[in-house]
Design a protein around this nucleic acid. Structure first.
Lengths: 189, 189
DNA sequence: CTGAACATGTAATCCGTTACATGATTGG
DNA sequence: CCAATCATGTAACGGATTACATGTTCAG
């Protein structure tokens, strides 16, 4: 039941399904994703439920855009979602499950796996660093004078950055431990 | 497609569906979860596919246990999963999406929300700290002389611990920023 | 003229949760 | 005797992914 609420949150300014998809791929990518085949029917259902209203707008390029806006009922539903308190579900980190079973691979492939992970998360971290740098350069209120909605958007960005930094450091520690182990086994074997 | 592979990884020693569920609720809880209604049919299907074989064993209590063991084909499938490289999907952190929209709540409720989050993750962190302390107390090889499979299990535990620690610290920073904001607005308003 | 980006949708399938269904054993 | 724990399953539903389907505009 999260996607409809997240869409309500994102619709602070009116937007089309296509716009929302773009935002999932940029700003919100580190904590949620959704594809168009899920977004379009969800928006339609929310309109039927009275949470949104839409109007068609001509597009410069391609077919007309269907632009959605929150209704009063939509804003109320969003507020109630927040008032119910934090929704913490168990994470599904299949890459971490994989790390737990790396003993099934030879030492070289174990190392390769951890290096790939490391590089992948460095890439993710860099993307968010780029977002933050851009924000810092273009908004004189950044970071201590940000008004309410942007303050919270910055909170989520900070979590993304520290999360990726933590994972990258952890990968480096794991690689060091693997190297120590292999140095030891080479000496004794 | 992750659950079958994770079950293969967990079945280093033979176990029943019920046993595996227990393990999801203890050791593996910080990176995966599955309930019995998903585990039982998955194990059955994997047996049909030749990845597992089972035998019935009498139980002290309740109906007979169906104990599964990996076949050679199962171990091969697990190895291939690992050789395909890390499976990194986008996280689904609905609590973080909620934080992004907290501007819809009054200041007091914003703070309450962050305090609840903080306390929740402190609890998660403490559970993993308990696991690690127990391990350290009962295994003389901990942490530098752990042999291969346990070494990687420790890697996953370390990630869980630093992940929760990072989130807790982030909650505290957010609370400080909220308090500074409210001190400022009280002075000017 | 071809491919990328714009723009919307449906259908089939798969994964995960909740609810339902059954029954034995042990501790309080 | 009752609740908790042990133990296995099916059915219905909802959420998410992949594949299919259509059509425009602009840059190279």
């Amino acid at each position: 039941m999260s996607l409809p609420n997240i869409l309500l949150g994102m619709l602070a300014t009116p937007a089309s399904g296509y716009d929302l998809k773009q935002r999932f791929e940029n700003q919100e990518r580190h904590y949620w994703s959704a594809n168009l085949a899920q977004i379009y029917p969800t928006l339609k259902r929310m309109e039927n439920d009275g949470l949104l209203e839409s109007r068609e707008e001509p597009s410069d390029k391609g077919p007309p855009r269907k632009v959605y806006r929150r209704t009063r009922a939509g804003i109320d539903a969003l507020t109630q979602w927040l008032q119910r308190g934090p929704e913490v579900h168990s994470d599904r980190l299949s890459w971490l499950a994989q790390v737990g079973y790396l003993a099934h691979l030879p030492a070289k492939q174990q190392r390769d796996f951890m290096v790939k992970l490391h590089d992948e998360f460095v890439r993710h971290r860099r993307e968010l660093e780029g977002l933050e740098a851009h924000w810092a350069a273009h908004d004189p209120r950044f970071p201590d004078a940000l008004p309410d909605p942007e303050l919270f958007a910055h909170f989520t960005l900070r979590l993304g950055l520290t999360k990726y930094a933590t994972i990258v450091e952890w990968c480096e520690e794991c690689l060091e431990r693997l190297d120590r182990r292999d140095a030891k086994s080479a000496a004794s074997g």
